[in-house]
């Protein structure tokens, strides 16, 4: 399914701010894998997701998804395979456009956009049904500007948008980090539901160890641009936070430095 072979990325090469964010990172995902990604700040988690999404080209290595070589493709040309939800709830939706317009844009992810009508009547029915499943009452606000919705609502909409046209790979980049705990739990539950309903191959970054252990069938830990731990199946189910923190200290050679990780 997803095949990442030895990709590297260095930001600001040749300057004092030089940062090797990805260091010959390799990762293989099987269809239906739901992988949670943890690691300290600057470990390269988001950089890995951005490399897959094609926000910028990698320096070396190769990224394949569903038999397509993504490495030379710019971001918008990879979009037909990839659904994304960002950390910032404002980033995944167009605030001045109507809710149904946003959904219609997402429905056409990676498709040719021609001169037929932007939102059709049949589509509206589908969107209404899908919005109902969110349980947020948004099905009655389909012509409202998305900018009027709350952060949690917008994140739920983004999640729906990412799955409206079924992606080969779903990238969740700390998509609950900016939400209050109750909303975060709700959005996370929704993510679980959408992923399992469509059996989506998923990469989910989280700062929350408990979430990382509870969700998905596989967990990877990153440090200094590499994957230092890869746990799956039964072994993952029985992980504890304590074990993870100890493992990190042993593998990375330093204790996990972020408070948010320790406290969560």
């Amino acid at each position: 399914m997803l095949d990442i072979r030895e990709i590297s990325k260095t930001f600001n090469p040749g300057t004092v701010n030089e940062k090797r964010a990805l260091n010959k990172l390799s990762l293989h995902l099987d269809p239906g894998d739901f992988v949670t990604v943890i690691g300290g700040n600057g470990a390269g988690k988001s950089t890995m997701l951005n490399a897959i999404a094609g926000v910028w080209p990698v320096d070396e290595g190769r990224i394949e998804l569903d038999g397509h070589d993504l490495t030379p493709l710019p971001e918008h040309k990879r979009a037909f395979l990839i659904g994304r939800v960002f950390q910032d709830p404002m980033m995944g939706t167009a605030p001045n456009m109507q809710l149904e317009e946003n959904l219609a844009l997402a429905k056409r992810r990676g498709q040719k956009r021609g001169l037929s009508w932007g939102v059709t009547r049949d589509e509206r029915e589908e969107y209404r049904e899908r919005l109902k499943t969110l349980g947020l009452g948004l099905e009655d606000r389909m012509t409202a500007r998305v900018g009027l919705l709350s952060g949690g609502q917008r994140q739920a909409v983004t999640l729906l948008m990412a799955s409206l046209r079924e992606p080969k790979l779903l990238l969740l980049d700390e998509h609950t980090a900016a939400l209050d705990p109750a909303t975060a739990a709700k959005v996370l539950e929704l993510s679980d539901k959408i992923v399992s309903e469509h059996n989506l191959t998923t990469l989910m970054i989280t700062h929350n160890m408990t979430d990382a252990i509870q969700h998905g069938n596989r967990l990877i830990m990153m440090n200094e641009g590499q994957i230092i731990l890869d746990v799956r199946g039964e072994e993952k189910k029985h992980l504890t936070r304590r074990e993870l923190i100890d493992k990190f200290a042993a593998l990375a050679g330093t204790p996990m430095e972020t408070d948010s990780v320790l406290l969560s």
Binding site: A53, E75, H76, K77, A79, F80, I82, R84, F86, M91, G92, T93, A94, P95, N96, M97, E101, A104, L105, A106, R108, R109, G110, Q111, R113, G118, M161
Partner: peptide, 18 residues
């Protein structure tokens, strides 16, 4: 719609293949 989306949220637009 894609033109309007581009002006409204370029990052989202790219992620949606525009």
């Amino acid at each position: 719609s894609a033109i309007r989306a581009t002006g409204n949220n370029p990052a989202m637009s790219r992620a949606l293949g525009i």
